[in-house]
Amino acid sequence: MMPTAQMSSSGGPWRLYVALMGSTKWPDYRWERPTPVPTIAERRTVLATLGYEQVPGSEWSWIEDTTTYGDDGSPVLLIAAVEVRESRGGAS
């Protein structure tokens, strides 16, 4: 199973992290801005810095959730995800 990079925000800063099953520490990065949404180029640069790259042919997908489970009146949490793999050239 390929690792997944996820990016999330609930209206504040954006956080990108690589979800590594079986690991207690996930590589991550935080943009200290609520807008604009980090571009695909910015995400690619951060992934490379973390030692990962987007799997060729994969695309970012978006979902929304609530910050409080089951409460559709709570603030929305936006989550983007894409399959990644370790970079061929290692971390840059």
Rank of each mutant, 00 (worst) to 15 (best):
P3N: 10
P3A: 13
P3Q: 07
T4W: 05
Q6V: 15
Q6C: 15
Q6Y: 15
Q6A: 14
Q6H: 15
S8N: 03
S9P: 01
S9C: 10
G11R: 01
W14S: 00
W14G: 00
W14I: 01
R15L: 15
L16I: 12
L16K: 00
Y17A: 15
V18Y: 00
V18D: 01
V18M: 08
A19H: 11
L20D: 02
M21R: 07
T24L: 08
K25N: 10
K25H: 09
K25F: 15
W26Y: 12
W26N: 09
D28P: 06
Y29A: 08
R30E: 12
W31H: 00
E32N: 13
R33H: 10
T35L: 12
T35I: 08
T35D: 11
P38D: 05
I40H: 14
A41W: 02
R43S: 11
T45C: 05
V46R: 00
V46S: 00
A48E: 02
T49F: 03
L50G: 01
Q54H: 07
Q54E: 12
Q54V: 15
P56D: 07
P56C: 05
P56A: 09
G57A: 10
G57K: 04
G57S: 12
E59P: 00
W60M: 08
W62F: 12
T67Q: 04
T67D: 03
T67A: 03
T68G: 11
Y69S: 13
Y69C: 09
G70C: 06
D72M: 14
G73Q: 04
S74T: 09
L77W: 02
L77I: 05
L78M: 11
I79R: 03
I79N: 01
A80Q: 04
V82F: 03
V82I: 14
V84Q: 00
V84P: 00
R85I: 05
R88Q: 14
R88A: 10
R88H: 09
G89W: 12
G89D: 13
G90Y: 05
G90A: 12
A91W: 10
S92A: 13
